[in-house]
Design a protein around this nucleic acid. Sequence first.
DNA 1: AACTGCTCTGCTCGTATGAGCACGGCGGTG
DNA 2: CACCGCCGTGCTCATACGAGCAGAGCAGTT
Lengths: 317, 317
Amino acid sequence: MARSGIDDDELLAVRVAELYYDEDKTQDEIGGLLGISRWKVGRLLQQARTDGIVRIEIVHPRARKLGIERELRSRFGLADAVVVPNAGTDAETLGRVAQGAADHLTALRPVPKTLAVSWGRTLTAVAERLPDGWARGVTVVQMNGGVSVNRRPGGAASLAATIAQRASGQVALLPSPAILERLETKQAIERDRTVAGVLAQASAADAYLFTAGVCDAGSAHVENGYLSVRDIDLLARRGAVGDVLGRYIDADGNVVDPELDARTVGLSLDRLRAARTSVFVTAGEAKHDIARTVVTANLCTMVVTDEATARTLLEEE
Amino acid sequence: MARSGIDDDELLAVRVAELYYDEDKTQDEIGGLLGISRWKVGRLLQQARTDGIVRIEIVHPRARKLGIERELRSRFGLADAVVVPNAGTDAETLGRVAQGAADHLTALRPVPKTLAVSWGRTLTAVAERLPDGWARGVTVVQMNGGVSVNRRPGGAASLAATIAQRASGQVALLPSPAILERLETKQAIERDRTVAGVLAQASAADAYLFTAGVCDAGSAHVENGYLSVRDIDLLARRGAVGDVLGRYIDADGNVVDPELDARTVGLSLDRLRAARTSVFVTAGEAKHDIARTVVTANLCTMVVTDEATARTLLEEE
DNA sequence: AACTGCTCTGCTCGTATGAGCACGGCGGTG
DNA sequence: CACCGCCGTGCTCATACGAGCAGAGCAGTT
């Protein structure tokens, strides 16, 4: 049998770690027990930690991966990052990420006077988890068109309203479809006083909170009739990896179909890119590609996500 | 959504644990950062450890489960116990247990002058892992009959010889089958000077090293023709859970078939039970039942096994 | 209201621990 | 052989830490 590469010191480190962590002995006691100096015991413990013999893990739904967060910040020049451990199911993971985003938003300083939001299942989950009084007097503004104003709880309007209400603030809804069939209609809607006002407010927001969608037939845009399955297929063929604020982009962050983009109501990606504070929330493997795009194309200043997504982002490019 | 029972202090504990273990901050720093006293930080860390929020794990093939070992000792009044973590496969787990047994044997004090051994795949694995010079001048004696003297390496004889050789000692082989067809033959063999001498030596050994077999058709007794599949079936029907030194016993440790037992060559279970030092080595789920019997029937003073087996033993009876 | 028991807090103090340094052995080099 | 740099060791010293205590709040009881 081939000798495995187990060093003598390594074995000693294991013994020491057992005595220290499992048996709660002091380093001094261990030294006496094993016939080595207490300093060597300390060094072995350090070695055991760096070699991964001793693994310290924080097991909690609200736990965060600070090491990965640090890497994300430095690699992508982000102002902040929140990474939570994956759970057993995607739904649970989404819940954790949403909770992380809610916590992050609550702790965000300076507190935004105006917060622009997009919509989607992810943000709905975030809104649900914001505690009452997470902030005071925040005006919440929709920044892209979407499902109609009075919809089931969980719709775009309800989501924005919930966030505002729990901060005892106002909400400014954008009464417009996400994408219009004709350019002229879109231009007309944008000239509407209400719509123009909301967009102007969104443009001047202190902070942005948004998610991204994947480019597939299950998208909310298809579900709501803004796009057909054929449109999606065509976009994918042209390299689209997903959408941000209803705008479909390729892996480099460029708009795939400028004509379609011109018919899309909402803030421009350039405006988003210029924001001082924009929080991107994403969870799940399906969104890895679009997440990579959002982060590398500098569409956000902060990201909230799960560990698996974060690790994918950090894989050398 | 139902509020989960996550207490405020628990969240704080998670936060504290992250800063302490992931970020290597001091408790004082953390206190300043979170606006609590450093003593509270210390208390939260303790709480986090006892609540299982912080899990410290020693990941190494040679690692041991000292906590479980302690429980085994106190529950069953054992002189010592060695428990190693399970590996991915049964073969690997067996290797770890064997390594644990080899380490334990090497460290055994007082060093036995005479060591009686049984045989089996498990003990073969132990012998392989004993380092040269694990002891000096130990006489190794077989304590039950078995496969013939000169067999493939890994056979009963080779196993005992290996153990002796690596301790620069002598070996005393028991030249006898495990089970004889007729009682008279067995008695005749026992009268043989060599056999009687070896058995007497084994009877007076300072320490015993043995394993147990399960009662199924794959047993070495069937393989070697000492028992037929029908015999095994019959034994199982009469409550046998396995064999120790070739003697089949039920869950309470009683010999199942006295007539068969009388035809079995080797130390009696009572002699084994009376030993001051007897090390029982077992690995794998298949042997859980017989392992429980050996331990509860006081057939050993020390046990070496895997974590899964140990946990099974500790389940309330 | 006064009392009592309970929990939670922040403190004092002795101890355990980690950073940094000086020493000694060891192998390579002129 | 002397020399030198390197690694592993055990030390000094400052500091982080935990045990255990005393006081504050708080609810229930008389």
